[in-house]
């Protein structure tokens, strides 16, 4: 009986591992998301936000996968671009977060300070992004940028956020 168990246990383990499926990584690009801070704006932190329709379902279908196979998601690159050919001057620092009906707001990236005279900057991405997968499965996600401005302004301020996201799938 003991020898039978010794024989069957490794086979059982292999069978269980096979049933779990092979993890697979897909790279998903957000495309540009316009974020607006509505004026009047004040020196210090101002909130810019925009709505993003990830369209993850269609993306996964095109790769022969489905939403329920997504096990984790992580922003691996985040960029902030100036709007319509301007630059990012006046923004001392920027932080990007995502929120949706699916769960809690998650900060995904930050850049402090923002270097002068830049049209595009790359932010440092968060290490842990536990809630991101749940947000991405929604049809609508709110992207929030906390912009630390160096002066008051009566006008709106627009910036464009883009994300590169790694999806972990279990097929």
């Amino acid at each position: 009986m003991i020898s039978f168990c010794k024989f069957i246990s490794p086979l059982l383990a292999i069978a269980l591992l096979s049933a779990c499926g092979t993890p697979e990584t897909l790279v998903f690009e957000s495309g540009p998301v316009t974020l607006t801070a509505e004026g009047p704006l004040f020196e210090g932190s101002n909130t810019a936000q925009g709505t993003w329709a990830p369209g993850l379902d269609e993306f996964l279908q095109a790769h022969g996968a489905a939403l329920d196979q997504v096990r984790a998601a992580k922003v691996v690159a985040a960029h902030l671009d100036a709007f319509e050919g301007g630059n990012l001057n006046g923004i001392r620092s920027a932080s990007l977060s995502v929120a949706s009906e699916a769960g809690d707001m998650e900060q995904v990236a930050v850049l402090n300070p923002v270097p002068p005279d830049q049209q595009r900057v790359t932010l440092t991405t968060a290490t842990g992004q536990k809630a991101l997968a749940a947000h991405l499965k929604q049809t609508s996600v709110t992207v929030v940028a906390d912009l630390d401005l160096d002066a008051d302004s009566e006008d709106d301020r627009h910036v464009i956020g883009t994300f590169t996201i790694e999806l972990q799938l279990a097929r």
Partner: peptide, 24 residues
């Protein structure tokens, strides 16, 4: 000041002024 005690080291440069301490 920055958020030097953030459990995620990658986010410790986030300015404290502007930090969202109440959420959701």
């Amino acid at each position: 000041k920055v958020d030097k005690n953030n459990p995620d080291e990658a986010l410790r440069s986030t300015p404290l002024r502007g930090y969202r301490i109440l959420k959701d």
